[in-house]
Lab assay of single mutants.
Amino acid sequence: MVIEDPKTNKLIEVEKLPDGTYKVTIYDKKTGEKKTITMSKKDLEKLLKAL
C-alpha cells in the first residue's frame, strides 16, 4: 500500500512482513531521502490516523 501525504510531500509505503510486523518506508519527494522502519500493527494504525 502506498499513501501520498500532500501536506508534507512524502510517500509512505507499507508492506506486511511474514512475522506480522509492518515495514514502513517514507520517501521525501523534495530531498530524495528514504527512511525505513519496522513497526507493529498498533503503531502503524496510530501513524495512519495522524495523517
Rank of each mutant, 00 (worst) to 15 (best):
N9R: 01
K42I: 13
I12C: 01
K35R: 11
K49Y: 07
T36Q: 15
T31H: 11
T38A: 07
K49I: 12
P6Y: 02
T31P: 04
G20N: 14
K49A: 14
Y27M: 15
V2L: 02
K23C: 15
G20M: 07
T25C: 11
D43R: 03
E45F: 03
V24E: 00
K30S: 11
T31I: 06
N9C: 15
E45S: 07
L17C: 04
I26G: 02
T21H: 08
G20T: 07
T21K: 03
T31G: 07
V2D: 07
K49N: 15
K7S: 14
T25Y: 08
E33M: 03
E15F: 06
K34Q: 11
M39N: 01
V14L: 12
T31M: 03
I37T: 12
V14H: 06
V14P: 01
E15C: 03
P6A: 04
Y22W: 09
T31Q: 12
T31N: 08
M39F: 04
G20H: 06
V24W: 01
L44T: 02
K30E: 14
E45T: 04
M39C: 09
D43M: 04
T36N: 04
A50Y: 10
N9T: 09
K34A: 08
L51H: 13
E13N: 05
D19N: 09
T31W: 05
P6L: 15
E4A: 01
K49Q: 12
T21I: 14
E4V: 01
I37K: 14
D5S: 02
I37H: 11
E33C: 11
L48Y: 04
L11T: 14
K49W: 03
T36F: 07
L44F: 14
T36E: 08
Y27W: 12
L44H: 01
K34C: 14
L51E: 11
T21V: 10
I26V: 09
K30A: 09
D28R: 00
Y22P: 00
L48G: 00
L11D: 04
V24F: 01
K30F: 15
L51Q: 13
E33V: 14
I37W: 08
L47H: 02
K10W: 10
K34N: 07
K34T: 12
Y27V: 09
K10T: 15
V2K: 01
G20F: 05
L44M: 12
L48R: 01
A50I: 03
K49T: 15
T8Y: 10
P18H: 06
G20R: 04
E13G: 08
I26M: 13
P18Y: 10
K16Q: 09
K34E: 09
K46V: 12
T31A: 05
K29I: 07
I3P: 08
L48C: 06
K29D: 11
D19T: 06
K46T: 14
T36S: 08
N9M: 05
I37Y: 07
T36I: 15
L51N: 07
K7P: 08
L17D: 04
I26R: 05
T21G: 14
P18S: 12
K29N: 12
L51C: 07
E13R: 03
K23V: 15
K30Q: 09
K16M: 13
K29S: 10
D43K: 04
K7G: 15
L44E: 00
K46Y: 11
T25D: 11
K10Y: 13
D43C: 10
I26D: 04
D19H: 09
K7T: 14
E45W: 03
A50F: 06
Y27Q: 09
M39P: 03
T38P: 12
K35E: 06
I37F: 06
K49H: 12
I12H: 06
T8A: 12
V24M: 02
G32K: 13
L17G: 11
K34R: 08
M1T: 05
E33G: 08
G20V: 01
L51Y: 01
K34M: 12
G32Q: 11
T8G: 14
T31D: 04
L17V: 10
L17F: 13
A50Q: 04
L44Q: 01
L51T: 11
E4K: 00
G32H: 08
K7H: 15
K10R: 12
M1F: 03
K7V: 11
A50S: 13
T8L: 06
M39A: 05
M39H: 01
D43T: 01
L47N: 00
P18C: 15
L47C: 04
L17Y: 07
Y27T: 13
